[in-house]
Design a protein around this nucleic acid. Sequence first.
DNA 1: CTTGACATAGAACATTTGTTCCGTGTATAA
DNA 2: TTATACACGGAACAAATGTTCTATGTCAAG
Lengths: 226, 226
Amino acid sequence: MVGHSGLSARQVKMLQVIRDYSEEYGYPPTIREIGDLVGISSTSVVSYNLNALQSKGYLLRDRDISRGLRLVDTNAEDQVLNDQEVLLSEFVSIPILGAIAAGIPLPVPDSNDSLADAESIRVTREMIGNPRDVYALQVRGDSMIDALINDGDIVIMRHQQQAQNGDMIAAWIKDEKATTLKRFYWESGRETVRLQPANPLMDPIYVHPRNLDIQGKVIGVIRRLD
Amino acid sequence: MVGHSGLSARQVKMLQVIRDYSEEYGYPPTIREIGDLVGISSTSVVSYNLNALQSKGYLLRDRDISRGLRLVDTNAEDQVLNDQEVLLSEFVSIPILGAIAAGIPLPVPDSNDSLADAESIRVTREMIGNPRDVYALQVRGDSMIDALINDGDIVIMRHQQQAQNGDMIAAWIKDEKATTLKRFYWESGRETVRLQPANPLMDPIYVHPRNLDIQGKVIGVIRRLD
DNA sequence: CTTGACATAGAACATTTGTTCCGTGTATAA
DNA sequence: TTATACACGGAACAAATGTTCTATGTCAAG
């Protein structure tokens, strides 16, 4: 930066401060902000020097406009943005077949559910692996809190009727007429199934296998906040 | 003009008006000026739509700052997209910058974090909106249970230091030297911030704004079960 | 020494400008 | 129907921010 003849040290500094501030925030500083950055306690002095700078042709002021400063010496500074690299990848469209809540049975996918007429969500393939028999459900209400799943979340399921130990499953408990999402463990010694909430603070429940209807395996949860 | 998915016609026009105005005057327009140029008589409606644009990632607002608007530059990104096929825009690769846990500060993204050397996760674009300043963190431990987020989950964040009411944010609470994920609410009457856990059974905590360091906004959670 | 231009500081003031609050209409779901 | 969420409009409010006014000190010219 050259050619600041006729400017006081203070005015040069003010110009610099205005440039830096504008660069950082995308809009010019206020009189008080300039004062703070340059070390001037009085707004009138800042205004005074801004007028001086204007009359010397270094900037323009717009009267009564907050931040109404325009640097005349606008060197176009091109900011280099670290743009996110966009990569190609495979994806799959998963139909959202309906809702899931504690009190209602899960919708069961059948061949009538074509992708065409259902709402759907697209995810990358690595999210789900093999897309066969995969569908999604939207969570209604907060009855799945124990599974760390909240209203509005989308649960991605694979339709299957068996489960292995440790699988997170969606199950219909017949006695209670309730749907639940829990991890499945077969307690061979006691001939019962232990359903373990994801939340470690919650206690597991034990059900007889005949009282249990496995609806599918949870293979993912997607939560979109806005 | 590409990539205005999810915006109303009014919001698209607002973006255009803000761009043109900033270009012409060197500083952004006020709410009332935007209203005049777009044809909105009420300042609250302009503000309302500015907040919508912010939550969709198109700009940043600085609270209580006159003309406190920063356009997020989608230009560079669009440039990349135009070079490639449209299909590429469906996916975004998000760098996983590190871990998040209650007791450790969050990693802060900077320009050194290139996509090349970080682990990354691919998601569909509709999951995150504008990919600028977006990064991901892997959750370690179960200290985020209150936020319905568990060990191994991946949290997708947008780096920003302000928040609006209702935003789920990642915050560092200085007193307690702890990171937390909660919904942000400014209690204007009490001059404090209420941090509300996602789990409705948990009580909110109240912190003084000076004791709070907003690290970013949570825009998504991804959980992969195997 | 006195005068006047210049530069400054502090405070009061006025305007600009963002925020909040209340009400309306509409579309959708219960 | 009723309830709810969303988008909007208008007005009052509060915070921010620019302007003005008075006063002080310096310095060179008369």
